[in-house]
């Protein structure tokens, strides 16, 4: 078969400029056929989701706002290894590492921790690569419905540890749940 006439999809249609017959030029039959198609759509199921009352189901891999996790004893998991920042394609993550003092053993799980951990939410694309890169189970993208609330200043979009770290109460709740199980 010649290359020009080959069809990979099997749906190739040769275009022809042949003169239409009289019946074809009337278009009446074609119009009736078209109207039968549209009338069929009158009875199909509507795809609209009535938003405030109905909410579309989220995908299982939905990625919402980031969360820096604490373990069951309420200590921060993050050790400021920087792998998340390295993996981030948008270069949204920065951090400063610090050494844990003996008096801070109840706050941080390991000797090194992130004293500053910032994500620039204007740069973040919610790809979840930070979550995949993290060796310490520290950063997660949650199912939170709120992605980034609107702000007036660009600085406000840089989320620090105050917004990212899991609240202590939630850590306690997780611990209780785990004990109960």
């Amino acid at each position: 078969m010649a290359l020009q006439t080959m069809s990979l999809s099997g749906r190739k249609k040769e275009v022809s400029n042949k003169k239409m017959t009289f019946l074809e030029r009337l278009y009446l039959w074609t119009i009736i056929k078209g109207m039968m198609i549209t009338i069929g759509h009158l009875f199909t199921r509507k795809v609209t989701i009535k938003y405030p009352e109905q909410v579309r189901e989220r995908s299982k891999v939905y990625r919402g706002q980031h969360l820096l996790k604490r373990d069951e004893q309420g200590r921060e998991n993050c050790t400021a290894c920087g792998l998340c920042a390295l993996s981030c394609p948008a270069e949204a993550i920065t951090m400063t590492a610090s050494e844990r003092k003996p008096s801070e053993k109840h706050l941080y799980r390991e000797e090194k921790y992130a004293s500053v951990y910032e994500i620039n939410m204007l740069r973040c694309i919610f790809c979840g690569l930070c979550e995949e890169a993290c060796p310490k189970d520290a950063i997660y993208l949650t199912e939170s419905k709120v992605l980034v609330p609107s702000q007036y200043d660009r600085e406000d979009f840089i989320f620090g540890k105050d917004k990212l770290v899991m609240p202590l109460t939630e850590a306690m709740k997780n611990a209780q749940l785990k004990n109960a199980n």
Binding site: H41, L42, T44, T48
Partner: peptide, 13 residues
């Protein structure tokens, strides 16, 4: 309404 129905939508409601 008819426009919406023919396009598989609901229309003003």
């Amino acid at each position: 309404k008819v426009a919406a129905w023919l396009q598989d939508r609901i229309g003003p409601n």
